[in-house]
Amino acid sequence: MSLQDVVFICIAAMTLLGAFLAVWLKNVFHNALSLILCLFGVAALFIFLNAEFLAVIEVIIYIGAISIAIIFAIMLSRPWFHQSAPRDPIKLVRSALASALLFGGLLQLLRLTQWPVADPAAGDFSMRGIGRSLLTTYALPFETVSLVLLIAIIGALVVSTSKENSS
């Protein structure tokens, strides 16, 4: 087993551990911190896949913006004052069964499918190539996404500052 594989297994274990803790722990603040661990793992996997630009994007946007926004919302809404109800074991078993079925089905599907293969190393992985596709071939989706972001910001401002019927 090469050194690269050892590092890969460590990173995969870190990602899956972070994901597990992010859904399992009862304190929502701990969930958010575990989500950050998991996102760091995914960013490292992106580096393994030659997508350095996406790794940087993942750290900046997911960890720097989304996770921090989630932590802000947790601190503003203070959910741990209300969370003391014990877990319902029937619901736990039901959701574990459903997700295990989904996971097993996906694994079976992956084992049975023949994936088309291209040369994993050849091709343009660089930021220059990404920027060129974004501004030529995919210019319309790019502009649409920026419009969606603008509307989301305006919508969030409208919702969070509405004083109508505030009790």
Partner: peptide, 8 residues
Amino acid sequence: ALLGLGVF
């Protein structure tokens, strides 16, 4: 595995 944990 991430998808399964997320759905869970």
